[in-house]
Design a protein around this nucleic acid. Sequence first.
DNA 1: TTGTGTTTTACGACCTCC
DNA 2: GGAGGTCGTAAAACACAA
Length: 222
Amino acid sequence: MDQTVLSSQVYPNTIQSHSQCIIVNQIDGSSSGDRSKPVKRRRKRRSRGSSATNEDDVRAMEGMFKKRKLTDEQVIMLEYSFENEHKLESGRKEKIAGELSLDPRQVAVWFQNRRARWKNKKLEEEYAKLKSQHDSVVLAQCQLESQVLKLTEQLSEAQNEIQKLSERLVVQETSTNSSSSSLSAETNDAPTDTTNYNIPLYMLDNSYLQNIEYWDGLYEQF
DNA sequence: TTGTGTTTTACGACCTCC
DNA sequence: GGAGGTCGTAAAACACAA
């Protein structure tokens, strides 16, 4: 079926305006493959309402630009074909075009656009996946920071407790020394009685005091 | 009805591969 | 150098709220 007829059946009001659209190729006269000019050149298109002004334009109007909406059936078949293979070899293009009564160029363009849509979709999926992973990492980080905060508080409390014990120990040592000096006048090796202060004997050991300083130093570093 | 945003069709420019 | 790819974009077609 002729595509113009097909389109005019589906969109009877569009064909006339389509035929009024033309494209002026290479308006600046440069070759299409000129890589020495990286600046993108806008192609020029005649607006819908304008008419041809010379023979070239008339020729362009007659043959070049026909924007035709594909039928549902054509789209379904193209999608099916795209599912099988995203690339389009020459033979396959001709075959599909013949089967769907389309211009081979239309099939090529449809595949180009379809690949672009597919790529966009893939990018969006990839973005969503990465965002999900990122959110999970951020959540885990928050949990860890909260945990660090709690442990820091516990450490601080423990350090305070040690400080209190240390101060009590100093007081005790002072009183012990004064009493022991009087006691030692009476008995030489009398054991130190700490029961009144409720402090274990091992705390009176120098190594214990050194341990306190050691842990305090560690805490300061932390 | 109309303004506006989105999708679809088509193309130019440029790139890559053979 | 040609064929066919991507990328960016124009313009038609379409959807939809106001």
